[in-house]
Computed example of a mutant assay.
Amino acid sequence: MKRHDRSPRVLAAAAVGLSGLAAAAFLGSQAFQRHPATAAPPAPPATGASASDVAEPATPPALPASVPLRLDVSRIGVRTPLMTLAKNPDQTVETPPPSRAQEAGWYRLGPAPGSRGAAVIIGHVDTADGPAVFHRLGELRPGDRVGVLRADGRTALFRIDSVERFDKDLFPTRRVYGDPGHAAIRLITCGGRFDRGSGHYTDNVIAFGHLVGSAGKGTR
Rank of each mutant, 00 (worst) to 15 (best):
A183N: 08
L137H: 05
V148W: 05
V16R: 07
V73H: 01
V212I: 15
S74Y: 00
V10N: 00
D90R: 07
V176H: 06
T127R: 04
V16S: 11
A43I: 04
L27N: 07
Y177P: 01
E103R: 12
A183G: 04
A46I: 00
F158P: 14
H182K: 11
P57F: 01
L71N: 03
A46S: 12
A46V: 06
L82E: 10
V54N: 00
A49C: 00
L211Q: 10
A112C: 05
A25Q: 09
M1W: 05
P180E: 08
S214Y: 01
T219D: 07
Q91R: 14
H4A: 15
P142H: 08
H200R: 15
G117N: 08
V67I: 03
P41N: 05
G218P: 08
K217H: 09
A15R: 04
Y177I: 13
Q33L: 11
A58C: 01
P98K: 01
T84H: 09
E94N: 14
V54S: 00
Y177K: 08
S162T: 15
T84G: 15
D72V: 13
S99V: 11
V148K: 03
R108T: 08
L211G: 08
K217N: 07
Y107I: 14
Y177C: 09
R100F: 12
R34G: 02
G181H: 13
A104C: 10
P142Y: 03
A119F: 09
L211T: 11
F158V: 13
R79P: 00
H35W: 10
T95G: 11
T189Y: 04
P98N: 10
G216Y: 06
K168L: 12
P8W: 12
R116A: 09
P36A: 10
R145A: 15
D195N: 15
F158Y: 15
G105M: 02
D161N: 12
A184K: 02
S74T: 13
R141Q: 14
T219C: 03
P180K: 06
P57E: 07
P98F: 01
D144G: 05
H210M: 06
L211V: 14
R116I: 09
I188F: 05
G48Y: 02
G216A: 08
G117W: 03
L63V: 01
D144E: 11
T59F: 00
V54G: 00
V67A: 14
R145K: 15
L149K: 10
F208G: 01
M83N: 04
P45F: 03
P60C: 03
P41Q: 03
A58S: 13
H35Y: 12
V120R: 04
A101F: 13
K217E: 13
P96H: 06
R108V: 06
A49T: 14
T92E: 01
F208V: 10
T59W: 00
P113R: 02
V212W: 03
A207T: 09
G178Q: 10
T173C: 01
V16F: 03
P41K: 06
V148E: 07
L71W: 04
L69C: 01
H124A: 03
F194C: 01
G213T: 13
A62I: 01
T80S: 15
L63E: 05
D167K: 04
D144F: 11
A62E: 04
P44N: 08
R136L: 11
L170G: 02
P36C: 09
L82V: 07
A25N: 10
T173E: 14
